[in-house]
Each structure stands twice: as C-alpha cells, then as structure tokens.
C-alpha cells in the first residue's frame, strides 16, 4: 500500500517511467471539460500518452470514459481544454487514429474483408495496398478462413477481432479502445487481452484503453488513470511498473496483486461513498 503511494507522482514528472517511453508525447490533453446540457461529465483532465505507451482508464460506468474517448477521437467537441495528437489540434477525427468500439461497430452488410478494408479505403489507400494489407491484418487477428463471413455469422469475440483488424489496418499511431472486450465472454476476453498485448509489442503505438475491469487495466497499462467524482476528474495516475512483454505470467507477479489492490482501493472508496449517499 505505502509502496503504491510512493508510486503516485504528478503526471508531468515522468522521468522515472518504468517501461512506456513517455517522451515525446503522442497525445497531450490539457484542462479537458465536457458537458451534456446541464450534466458536467468531466473537468480538469490533464494527461499525456507517449508514443509507445498504453494508458488504461478505469472508472465506474457512467463516469464519462466513452465521452472522453470520443473527444480524443474528435467525434464530439470539448467544452474546455484542448487535445493535441500527432502534433495536430483535435477538432475532428484526424488521420492516424483508430477507435475500437465497445459494440464492435461492424457494418452488418459487409463481410470481414470489406469491414477491414473500410478504414483503409476511407484513408485513400490504393487497391494494391488494400489487397495486400487486408489479408495480412485478418491473419494477424486470427480470422483467417473467415474472410467472407458476415458479422452475424460470427461470435462476439470474432467480431471484435474483426473490429481490431479494421483499426490496425490503417496502421494508426494512436489506438483508442472503448471497453473492447466487455461484450465478449470471460474466456475469450482473456485470450483477446493477451493477443492484443502480443500485437502491441510487435508494433507498439500510443494506446488509450478504456475498461471497467481493474484487473484488465493493470494488465494492459503502463499507467492507469482512475476517473471518479461527479463531475469526474483524474483521481490518480498509477504507474504500473510491471515488466513487458506482458503475458499470462504477469498475472502471477506479486507486484500485479499489489497494484491491482491499490487501483481497486482508488476506485472503490467512491463506490463506498456512493453507497453511503444512498443510505442517507
């Protein structure tokens, strides 16, 4: 516990970063705030994501994780602050960023091949590039043999593999993941977590990984951002000094249990407070 407290450092003092190479930053977010009408979702959010760093975001459902990702992606406007990604101020979706959606976001009228090709085509790739890259990425996510399948013919896990391939195919330098494995069963989820880590270590990028699973956040992230409060803000940025490459043995690492416990406490004392509120 005290060990974990020692780890707590302001986000800009990142020199002793354990793994993630944090400088130069791929995403720089300053003073982010977002409202939906009268509902202030989050405020005063500052963070950076390094070129080869995974920042995991945890927080209770409804705390604005999806909203934050959509702002980073430029899908919805901010009310305060600014996001700079790839050296460009984000006001609308920019090149080099790809989102993996919680409910996959596959087009049901397109086959796996056509879905994976979609991002590439929209990015203006040539036919030759598409013909070369699509099979490569379908293979990379383990969907070989399902090129002509439609989403309805596949399990949730396979659909998300397809969503992942579509995002990876544009070879983004920022990957945004919105609870990508929340809609698949527990075993598939574990398999996909380790596959994503394998794929990431082959081709590291900046990644923002939103999850409501504390375990998943600690497993995936170089750092874990704990969002809480109403409106929510960053409660703590936890350094996860577990070695990379991460794999199943990471789960058995004694540090893993300690860090998970620490993040759990960060997230939970709000849950307890909320419960107390209910009983007042």
């Amino acid at each position: 516990m005290s060990m974990a407290m020692d780890q707590r450092a302001p986000a800009h003092e990142t020199a002793k970063a354990p793994q993630g190479e944090r400088a130069p930053a791929r995403i720089r977010a300053r003073g982010l705030g977002k409202r939906y009408g009268a509902l202030q979702v989050f405020r005063d959010i500052d963070f950076e994501v390094g070129e080869r760093e995974i920042v995991a975001i945890v927080g209770p459902s409804g705390c604005g994780k999806t909203t934050l990702l959509r702002c980073i992606n430029g899908l919805i406007p901010l009310d305060a602050g600014e996001i700079v990604a790839n050296g460009e101020r984000v006001t609308q979706p920019i090149a080099g960023m790809a989102m993996v959606f919680q409910h996959f976001g596959l087009f049901p009228w397109k086959t796996v091949t056509a879905n994976v090709a979609y991002g590439l085509r929209m990015a203006g790739a040539t036919r030759a590039e598409i013909a070369e890259k699509v099979p490569y990425f379908i293979n990379l996510v383990g969907l070989a043999g399902f090129e002509h399948a439609y989403p309805y013919q596949m399990s949730g896990g396979m659909q998300q593999r397809c969503g992942l391939a579509r995002a990876l195919a544009i070879e983004p330098n920022v990957l945004l993941m919105d609870e990508p494995f929340a809609a698949v069963d527990a075993q598939t989820r574990e398999i996909l977590q380790f596959e994503l880590l394998r794929i990431w270590s082959e081709r590291p990028t900046a990644m923002v990984f939103v999850t409501h699973s504390i375990e998943e956040a600690v497993l995936m992230g170089h750092r874990v951002m704990v969002l809480k409060g109403r409106p929510s803000s960053i409660f703590e940025m936890v350094d996860i000094d577990l070695p990379f490459p991460r794999n199943r043995s990471t789960l058995l690492h004694p540090r893993f249990a300690k860090l998970r416990e620490h993040v759990w406490r960060c997230v939970m004392d709000e849950a307890q407070a909320a419960e107390r509120e209910l009983h007042v």
Binding site: R70, N73, L75, P93, I94, A95, M97, A98, M99, F101, H103, G105, F107, W109, Y118, G119, M122, A123, I170
Partner: peptide
Amino acid sequence: REYIEVSRAYRASGFSRLMEVVLPA
C-alpha cells in the same frame, strides 16, 4: 448512430457516408 460514428471516425466524406452507410442501412 454507431454506424455514423464509425464512418466519421474513419474520416469518410459526407457523400461516402450516404452511399456506403446510410443507403445500405
């Protein structure tokens, strides 16, 4: 809305969104 969002995230033009997302849907 999800389909529209996907096409916006991948920077599709308005016309492409109409032909490739709205029309097939």
